[in-house]
Amino acid sequence: MSAYVIVFLVLLAVWIAAGRYFATRPAIAKTLSRWGHILLPLVLIGLGVLILIEGGAFGL
């Protein structure tokens, strides 16, 4: 169980570092500040639909 926690925390740190890296790039920060309120919901909805499809929620 502790291996799962360690892997989770390490990968969480990687995601945080990647987010900080990209958010501090001027071109990406400008794009995110302009389009982030549209992109984030689309990404989250797409991820949710993908999870539902892969999980077989629509299979009859």
Rank of each mutant, 00 (worst) to 15 (best):
I16W: 10
S2V: 15
T31A: 03
R25N: 15
V14P: 11
W15V: 09
A3P: 05
I53E: 11
L40I: 15
R34A: 10
P41I: 05
I28F: 15
L40V: 14
V10Q: 02
G56K: 09
I16A: 09
V10A: 13
I6H: 02
Y4H: 07
F58D: 09
L52W: 09
G59W: 03
V43R: 01
L50T: 11
F58E: 07
T31Y: 08
L60R: 01
A3N: 05
T24I: 03
Y21Q: 01
R34F: 13
V7F: 10
I28T: 11
A17H: 01
A29M: 08
H37I: 09
R25T: 13
F22R: 01
L60K: 00
W35H: 08
I6N: 02
E54K: 14
I6G: 00
I16V: 15
F22I: 08
A23N: 11
L42W: 05
A23V: 07
L11E: 08
R20P: 00
P26C: 14
G48D: 03
I53S: 06
G48N: 04
W35I: 06
I53A: 12
L60M: 01
L32V: 11
V7W: 07
A18H: 02
G36H: 01
V7R: 03
L60A: 03
I6K: 09
L12R: 02
L47W: 06
Y4T: 13
L42K: 00
A18Q: 01
G55R: 13
E54Y: 12
G19R: 01
P26L: 14
R25L: 15
I6S: 03
P41D: 01
A13V: 10
W15H: 11
I38C: 00
M1E: 06
V43Q: 04
V7L: 14
V10T: 05
L32T: 01
F8A: 13
L47S: 10
K30W: 14
M1S: 12
I16L: 14
L11V: 13
L52K: 08
W15G: 00
F8E: 03
L9S: 09
I28H: 07
I53H: 06
F8V: 14
L52N: 10
F58A: 10
V43W: 05
I38L: 10
V5I: 14
L60Y: 02
R34E: 08
R20I: 11
V14T: 04
L12G: 13
G36A: 03
L42V: 11
L12E: 07
F22P: 02
V7Q: 04
W15P: 00
H37M: 03
V10K: 05
Y4Q: 10
G59T: 12
V7E: 08
A3T: 11
S33G: 13
F8Q: 02
I16M: 06
L50H: 05
L11S: 07
I51K: 08
A13R: 02
A3C: 00
